[in-house]
């Protein structure tokens, strides 16, 4: 098919080939510090990971970051979409400004939150101090117990608009008759919400959860700008680990192996994604 040829050629070159090449690389020990010797090591890059505490630590932090962010996104987006599904003055303006976080580049978002969290002059310290919640300025991002949550907060702020838009679609698709019928049957507001709204939103919810999980487990930009994996290893997530292993330790073989595992995790998620949406294709 002539019309399809360009797209297939492009995707073959920029998506399929790299992914296949990445698998191939992951079977070799490639270190740019040792450019002339790249021995074949089979599955060693993968088996080494099994006993690598730094790797499992990074995996665990990625999982907790994703769990925290995705559940926060789901809850906030649900509330916002319920609000924007109502008719009220100012709704149009509100939906427009909701696009602002979505449009901002991630690096600018990171810069903004870094400045908000700043330990000497940041807005978070300023406002908490003025409201008497804290009696002295805090080093927010330097606190190992808080870092991951603060980064998750910046991530959630940026991802909520998209999740809201997706949830609004399923809210709008609920026929008004259903609510009317439930009302006639004497259902209260809460009952209508639980028995009509929530079930109708299930596909939208699945979509948001899976899509946002895919975004969260691969997220890199905020970690790079806000903490560089620190303090200590508090925000040393998998994507950061891959970056350090590949471009600081210059160990391309194991970097490729780890990114391949991440790709497989994403494919597994996307399988769910396709299954959920399968009917619509």
């Amino acid at each position: 098919m002539l019309f399809l040829a360009p797209v297939m050629a492009v995707l073959g070159a920029v998506a399929v080939f790299p992914i296949a090449y990445s698998l191939y690389i992951s079977f070799f020990s490639i270190k740019l510090t040792r450019p002339n010797r790249t021995p074949f090591v089979g599955l060693k890059n993968y088996t080494d990971l099994l006993g690598d505490e730094a790797f499992w630590g990074a995996v665990w932090r990625t999982v907790s970051f994703s769990l925290v962010s995705v559940s926060a996104i789901a809850v906030i987006a649900l509330l916002v979409s319920l609000l924007l599904n109502q008719e009220f003055r100012g709704r149009r303006i509100l939906s427009t400004i909701l696009l602002v976080p979505w449009a901002i580049p991630y690096v600018a978002n990171a810069l903004m939150w870094k400045w908000i969290y700043d330990s000497s002059y940041g807005a978070l310290n300023g406002i908490l101090y003025q409201l008497d919640f804290i009696d002295k300025y805090m080093v927010w991002l330097g606190d190992q117990d808080k870092t991951l949550f603060l980064i998750a907060n910046a991530f959630v702020w940026k991802e909520v608009p998209l999740a809201t838009i997706l949830l609004l679609v399923s809210l709008k698709s609920i026929p008004a008759d259903l609510y009317l019928a439930a009302r006639v049957d004497g259902a209260t507001v809460w009952q209508r919400f639980v028995h009509v709204t929530l079930p109708a939103m299930k596909p939208g919810f699945m979509l948001v959860m899976i899509y946002e999980t895919m975004m969260a487990i691969r997220h890199f930009d905020l970690f790079f700008v806000l903490t560089e994996g620190g303090p200590g290893s508090a925000s040393h997530v998998l994507s950061w680990h891959i970056y350090v292993e590949t471009f600081r330790n210059l160990s391309f073989g194991s970097g490729a192996a780890m990114s391949y595992l991440l790709a497989i995790a994403t494919f597994a998620l996307s399988y769910l994604f396709i299954r959920t949406l399968g009917r619509k294709i």
């Binding site: 797209v7 297939m8 995707l11 920029v14 998506a15 399929v16 080939f17 790299p18 992914i19 090449y21 990445s22 690389i25 895919m214 487990i217 691969r218 890199f220 994507s239 891959i242 970056y243 590949t246 391309f252 970097g255 490729a256 990114s259 391949y260 991440l262 790709a263 994403t266 494919f267 998620l269 996307s270 994604f273 396709i274 294709i281």
Partner: peptide, 20 residues
């Protein structure tokens, strides 16, 4: 096929892209 390419994480493309 196109759907599948949509979900490849960018970070998985970085190493092969860089070498090529």
């Amino acid at each position: 096929f196109i759907l599948l390419t949509r979900v490849i994480p960018d970070i998985a493309l970085v190493v092969p892209f860089f070498l090529v």
